[in-house]
């Protein structure tokens, strides 16, 4: 080995460490913007229709129930949001759901493992952004959707095919950077 290449080899560990540092910085930046989520799990239902289900409505909410029949041949993309009154991040994301509903985006809700009276109290306190609302107290329909926590939000295109799933609260950033572009892309 020539002295030049020997010297080059001396710097190899530094190069490896620098590359690792750049990659780690990229990960941290991605986590900050929400592009990269180390705990996030890709949904197995992307590109498929929503599973068949019928669920009872939330009595007293004056909102029609959501069944899988309502998720076929839609006028535009819709959001399906799994939430619960006992879920703290759901309070964080609620203003964004209210805003989307006010802008005319259909937001459908499924109350997950929640007592009806608690769900009702939550909606009275924070507002009801849901155009359709069902409750899944046993949580079995949620399992058919691949839900593993609340809040979880799915975006379905006009054909009712699941295009996007987000596990976690819809922050204003998620609304602007993910949901709005997706709504535009699947508008037609």
């Amino acid at each position: 080995m020539s002295p030049a290449s020997r010297r080059a080899l001396l710097f190899a560990p530094f190069a490896v460490a620098a590359a690792g540092g750049v990659a780690f910085y990229g990960m941290l930046q991605g986590m900050k913007t929400g592009e990269y989520n180390p705990r996030g799990v890709p949904s197995a239902l992307i590109g498929r229709n929503a599973p068949d289900f019928t669920l009872p409505p939330l009595d007293g909410a004056d909102t029609p129930p959501l069944t899988s029949a309502d998720l076929r041949n839609l006028p535009g993309p819709v959001l399906v949001n799994f939430w619960a009154s006992w879920c703290v991040p759901c309070i964080i994301e609620h203003p964004q759901l209210v805003r989307l509903n006010r802008e005319g985006v259909p937001v459908y809700g499924i109350a997950y493992k929640d007592r009806p009276e608690d769900s009702l109290r939550f909606l009275r306190q924070h507002g009801n952004p849901f155009r359709r609302l069902s409750r899944d107290e046993p949580g079995r329909v949620a399992i058919d959707w691949g839900v593993y926590g609340v809040p979880e939000t799915y975006l379905l295109d006009r054909q009712g095919i699941i295009r996007w799933r987000f596990a976690g609260p819809i922050t204003p950033d998620v609304l602007e950077q993910d949901i709005r572009p997706l709504l535009r892309r699947h508008a037609s």
Binding site: V41, P42, S43, A44, L45, I143, W145, G146, Y148
Partner: peptide
């Protein structure tokens, strides 16, 4: 379970 939750 795989159909609902994928490889994970």
């Amino acid at each position: 379970l795989h159909a609902r939750y994928g490889d994970f």
